[in-house]
Design a binder for these strands. Sequence first.
DNA 1: GCCAACGTTGGC
DNA 2: GCCAACGTTGGC
Length: 163
Amino acid sequence: MRYWLFKSEPDAYSVDDLAEDGTAGWDGVRNYQARNLLRDEIQPGDLVLFYHSNAKPPGVVGVAEVVRGGHPDPTQFDPASPGYDPKSRPEAPRWYQVEIAFRARLPQMVTLQQIKEDPELREMMVARRGVRLSVQPVERAHFERVLRLGGLSPEALGGGTGR
DNA sequence: GCCAACGTTGGC
DNA sequence: GCCAACGTTGGC
């Protein structure tokens, strides 16, 4: 099992939206590095830190679980979608998504500032200057540390599937 | 294949 | 709202 961090602007899609929806296709990613992770690396059962970017303050606000691995992002074929890509064809999709399910809110959000100031977390990709990747790998130790700082027990999430 | 111009991200 | 840092595009 691997761990990831997904960024979302809460004005566009927040952890509350995910909690309400239950599951969501992580569509709209239009960056090749992130696409490769979505298509090739992210597997069902992997756990995701849900991160609010462009928020006040930015930080990790929840946990989700991957429930379906990489498959073509349908919004690329929808002319009405902001993610529409006229150069992508169904027989050779350019963009991929995974599906995630809501698992938990963090009782206390873990802010970007906390991550940067924490000796155990400051190596996280999200804390590094200039890193804009919206889908990032996270080390297990970092994942568990973020959960503890947020008031969740990693053990409570780790084993069960919640399904 | 270079690289200038442009667009986007996202913290501050 | 600013702007630094990146990524993408497209002319050549």
